[in-house]
């Protein structure tokens, strides 16, 4: 279990973290969300000792996190970077050994992941000779090869094509079911909704919403209403955050205790109701609400 508690970090006048904290249970996948500059990368760097917080703490399975514990963590930084002129297999073995694996363990783990990520025949290629997507895979392999208990991935899906997204999603699910705890940040909220059981939303250095995705959605006082009347968008009075989609339906956020019957009746009074969906808000809705309020 990873716990970040009340992290604070200030750079001169800029507040990067203002009491941020969240918890991830073993074997769970947490989506770490927030607008640009909200403090995601700083919080991740704190876990790896790359940034020393002014106050607050990070614990792993209840104990403090030091250099020894960090060797069991895998990290994929937002700023991708490896040695461009080094052969990728040598490079992965090097980093795995730095993480404490013996030469033999490192070689086995690296060969396994090169195969699993479709890079088996590229082992002796230099990093700089690989395509962008393959470089991204090598970066991921750097984090995965030391067989970490905790994976922290900063924007792992950025720049991947749909096939790459699907394969990374599968990989993360497999790892989690094997007991690996995973935290990743992303701006692709649909994807997060698809992959994650838990989310933490950070804004201006503070975690404004966190917990299991199902809980959060059900706990919300808002509901998402999707409706079209005679093929035309229709907006009930008092609704906000209205979007009209390409099919001519309107999506709006209404109070959760709004009487459904009254809504349906009001719409029916205008014309024929073709679509009427009243459901818990989506992650996008929750994100906007959390960040904009």
């Amino acid at each position: 279990m990873l716990q970040l508690v009340d992290l604070k970090k200030r750079y001169g006048d800029v507040v990067a973290l203002d009491g941020a904290g969240f918890t991830v249970e073993r074997g769970r996948i947490l989506g770490f969300l927030g607008p640009n500059g909200a403090g995601k990368t700083t919080a991740m760097r704190v876990v790896f000792g790359l940034v020393r917080p002014d106050s607050g703490s990070v614990s792993w399975n209840g104990g403090a996190v030091g250099p020894e514990e960090r060797l069991r963590f895998g990290y994929m930084p937002e700023e991708r970077g490896l040695y461009p002129k080094m052969k990728i297999r040598d490079q992965l073995i090097h980093f795995s050994r730095l993480s404490g694996l013996s030469r033999q363990e490192a070689t086995e783990a690296v060969d396994h992941w090169l195969g699993a990520l479709g890079l088996a025949d590229r082992g002796s290629a230099k990093l700089e000779d690989l395509s962008h997507g393959n470089q991204q895979r090598v970066q991921l392999a750097t984090a995965l090869a030391p067989n970490p208990e905790l994976l922290i991935l900063d924007e792992p899906f950025a720049g991947l094509d749909p096939l790459g997204v699907a394969s990374l999603t599968g990989t993360l699910r497999n790892l989690a079911s094997g007991g690996v705890t995973i935290v990743f940040s992303s701006h692709q909220l649909d994807l997060v909704e698809d992959v994650c059981e838990d989310v933490a939303i950070i804004n201006e250095g503070r975690v404004v919403l966190s917990g299991s995705l199902d809980d959060i959605r059900n706990r919300s006082s808002k509901r998402r209403l999707t409706i079209d009347v005679d093929g035309q968008p229709w907006v009930p009075p008092g609704a906000d955050a209205t979007v009209v989609d390409a099919q001519g339906r309107s999506h709006c956020i209404v109070d959760g205790d709004a009487p459904i019957g009254d809504l349906l009746a009001a719409a029916g009074a205008v014309g024929t109701v073709n679509t009427f969906m009243f459901e818990p808000p989506r992650l996008t809705d929750l994100f906007r609400e959390a960040v904009e309020s």
Partner: peptide, 13 residues
């Protein structure tokens, strides 16, 4: 320049 330093520093001091 290669930003590899962050990958390295996640493992060693």
């Amino acid at each position: 320049q290669n930003r590899v330093v962050e990958v390295v520093l996640a493992r060693v001091r």
